[in-house]
Design a protein around this nucleic acid. Structure first.
Lengths: 132, 132
DNA sequence: GTTGTTAGTACCCGCTGGTTACCGTGAGAC
DNA sequence: GTCTCACGGTAACCAGCGGGTACTAACAAC
């Protein structure tokens, strides 16, 4: 399993974080993943770089402003790169970084879970709503 | 096992959902997981049932109203059970269902990723903010 | 009567997610 | 020359929701 060397006062940044400590930056990282669109955007980029509009279509239902926000946040976190080509009409490509690639596995796990257990959740909801 | 008869719009693409289709209920399931507190709440319950206040402390920094909302949503989705004991002072216990337990693995993967890569993300953010 | 405990709810506020409209630039159609 | 289109956003606006604080009900213990 995972052996933790020294957690202590979480002052040094090379240690493992503790997601249950509100003061730990891990919380911010979790917030990013806990963003509605992050999972879908990162998942969409698994096959290689995409342009803005391609991403918009791939994700489906995301407003341009929100997509921009999501992409900027992901870029800031070092999960993807934004490359602007000096062309007209403009071309901008988004591509996962190495760090972003490592996120692919856990995100795929979440997506798989959602897709596999969707029906059970839907049933549970129907049952719950009926009881009220 | 799980067999879904018909899925409406998208050509019945077997029993598995498609998270990239905005009309697929998978999206709602993803939204639940993509909730800021879900990951922490479900993770807190991995060791067994907890009471409301215990959960509040375990998660850390969650407002009671928001915790209630989160718990109700998780209950509705069949991921946990809410047991009220007719005592004074009141006692309410929250416990993961079997379905909720299956969510433990992917959530642990996310949490592990966040805790392991936290420092890289923090560094990337600092770099990004400096460049501006 | 007073205090303590517990699981919430009521109420208010500010942020933010979402929607729609619009922009700048140059290539091609006419 | 000018009309239109493609593309990647941004501007302005709004509703809803997350978040914080205060408060409640009920009874046991003192």
């Amino acid at each position: 399993m995972v052996t933790i060397t020294a957690r202590g006062t979480s002052a040094h940044s090379n240690e493992r974080g503790d997601a249950y400590d509100p003061k730990c930056p891990t919380r911010h990282v979790l917030d990013r993943i806990g963003d509605k669109w992050t999972v879908l955007v990162v998942g969409s980029l698994r096959g290689g770089p995409l342009r803005f509009t391609q991403l918009r279509l791939a994700v489906g239902g995301v407003a341009p402003k929100v997509l921009t926000q999501t992409l900027r946040a992901l870029e800031r976190d070092g999960l993807l790169t934004r490359t602007v080509f000096a062309e007209v009409p403009p071309r901008v490509e988004y591509e996962l970084t190495e760090l972003g690639q490592t996120l692919q596995t856990p995100i795929a796990a979440i997506r798989d879970w959602a897709e596999l257990h969707m029906s059970q959740v839907v049933e549970a909801r129907a049952r719950y709503d009926d009881e009220i």
